[in-house]
Amino acid sequence: MHVAETTTQTRNLMVADHEMRLSWAGVTDQGRRRDSNQDAYLAEFPLFIVADGMGGHAGGEIASRSAIGRLQTVVSDGPVSRAAIERALELAVGDIADHPETTDEGTGTTLTGVFLDLDADLPHWVSLNIGDSRVYLLRDDRLLQVTTDHSVVQELIAAGKISPEEAEGHPYSNVITRAVGASELTAPDYITLDVRAGDRFVICSDGLTKELTDYGIQHFLRENADPADAVDAMLVAALENGGRDNVTLIIVQTTEETADSSSTDAETVE
Rank of each mutant, 00 (worst) to 15 (best):
E90V: 15
D117N: 11
T73V: 15
T148M: 10
H150A: 03
Y172F: 08
Y215I: 14
S81P: 01
S133M: 03
V231H: 07
D214F: 03
I217N: 04
H18Y: 06
D226C: 08
V80T: 12
N246F: 03
I130N: 06
E101F: 08
K161T: 14
I217H: 03
N246K: 04
E61H: 02
N224E: 05
G169Q: 09
V27H: 15
D206V: 04
L71E: 10
M20F: 07
D77S: 12
Q30R: 14
D214A: 12
G31I: 03
A266G: 01
L138F: 00
D194Y: 03
R139A: 06
D149K: 04
L71S: 06
A16P: 00
T254E: 06
T6N: 10
Q38S: 07
T213R: 11
H99N: 11
T258K: 12
L137D: 07
S262M: 09
A43E: 08
V180Y: 10
V153A: 05
H99S: 05
D141E: 15
Y136K: 04
I162Q: 12
Y215M: 07
D214P: 01
V231T: 08
L128V: 09
T147H: 05
A83H: 10
N241E: 12
M20G: 00
L144S: 10
L143E: 11
G26P: 00
E166S: 07
G78M: 08
R87T: 15
D17Q: 13
I250Y: 01
S127T: 14
A63E: 12
L22C: 11
R178E: 11
G242W: 05
G56D: 07
G169W: 05
V153R: 06
H2D: 14
D121K: 08
I157D: 14
L185K: 07
I191C: 08
E240M: 04
E270R: 11
A187Y: 08
N174G: 00
T8Q: 07
P100Y: 13
I62T: 10
V3R: 04
D229H: 12
E184H: 10
G169P: 00
S23G: 00
D39R: 05
A187K: 11
F201W: 12
Q253V: 05
T109L: 06
Q30G: 01
A228N: 06
V152Y: 09
R11T: 10
R142V: 13
D141S: 12
R222M: 08
N241C: 01
